[in-house]
Write a protein that binds this DNA or RNA. Sequence first.
DNA 1: CGCCGAGTTGAACTGAATCAAGAAACGTGG
DNA 2: CCACGTTTCTTGATTCAGTTCAACTCGGCG
Lengths: 207, 207
Amino acid sequence: MGLSRLSKEQNRCVNIKVIHIEKLLQHLRNYHQLGASAEEAVTANFEVLYFHRNDHLMVEGATSRYMYFLEEGLVRGYYNLEGREITHWFAFENDFFTSFHSFITHQPAVESLQFLEDSCTWRISKDRLERLCQNHHELERLLRIAYEKYYLRLEERFVNAQFRSATERYQDLLHQMPHIIQRIPLGYIASYLGITQETLSRIRRKL
Amino acid sequence: MGLSRLSKEQNRCVNIKVIHIEKLLQHLRNYHQLGASAEEAVTANFEVLYFHRNDHLMVEGATSRYMYFLEEGLVRGYYNLEGREITHWFAFENDFFTSFHSFITHQPAVESLQFLEDSCTWRISKDRLERLCQNHHELERLLRIAYEKYYLRLEERFVNAQFRSATERYQDLLHQMPHIIQRIPLGYIASYLGITQETLSRIRRKL
DNA sequence: CGCCGAGTTGAACTGAATCAAGAAACGTGG
DNA sequence: CCACGTTTCTTGATTCAGTTCAACTCGGCG
């Protein structure tokens, strides 16, 4: 459950921050165009952090004070339900992630966040994000638009969960993220889909 | 499938708009405090509309160009899945509603919206809402915060759908909205919970 | 009165969970 | 580079929650 970070690499990378953060800025532009001063504010307020495979970013009970952007790597959010571990989301390259409930409400998180691959992230604290939004209407708008998008994503997942069979959900997943199979253990994928590992194994045999 | 409106009552109400819209403003203040000019802009840009029980606000295939606020009444959103009607949300007093996917993406909606009771709504077009947000940073912020809240609501529903039994979900619903039983036919509630009407009927017998 | 929609009940069926046991793959230390 | 233990994945037998289909009850209403 190490919270260890690659401080050497990290320092190396802080020096070339301006180069790297371009990927985050590029991604932000997909949501909404930003002026020079807003982009500078982003550059000044996000910080890079590196993690190892299997590192925990946070564990349940902690309060999430940061929003993260995943430049490279893979993360899962999971929680315990009656003694068993439920993975309820994955974040891939170019995703924002955090324990949203905790981040938004300031309450202790019910979920834990763990890296499944060595990862490069950018983070900003809630305080700073609020300040940035206050000072740059453009960023507030960007955030609003980002929430719209994330809302729609979630809505789609909800409909799938409630009205499609396990097999359909697995096929959808394969279709939308074919790479997922190589990168994530079956058990995590199963609980993400809301089924048991055994059932998923059987589904795969038939395909 | 009447799209009829109560134009007489409506006109009467437009005259006393300033009194009525107070309820919308009051609700908005729960999300974020607004200055006088923002409140005036809201007052000037929302319009009141009345509907009858069973009226359709829109049917699948149409594109949702308005965001609605429900001052009084009851609405459901539903769609067809393999010939059967699935109610996937209800809006109650003080809820915002529309076909979110359609409203956000400008694409034709897959769902239809129907009033289950005589209702009083306030609406604003997407264009005007965008303009308001552009001119009033406060409103942009309010909208961002509203999306956060709606995101969390949906997340909770998603978790319930995927990991709780039908009985648990029904009990949760009873607990959170006890009035729902009196106001909504059993079949709608069942599909909202993701189960059949027969199953819900059996669950109720046992309680 | 008879019809119609809403809700209930029953019996058979089914998709997925559970429990239990093996097989395969993985990584770590010697 | 092999050997061993651990984790990951598969397979089988059984059980169970919820579906399906069909029939029936009840209350309202033209």
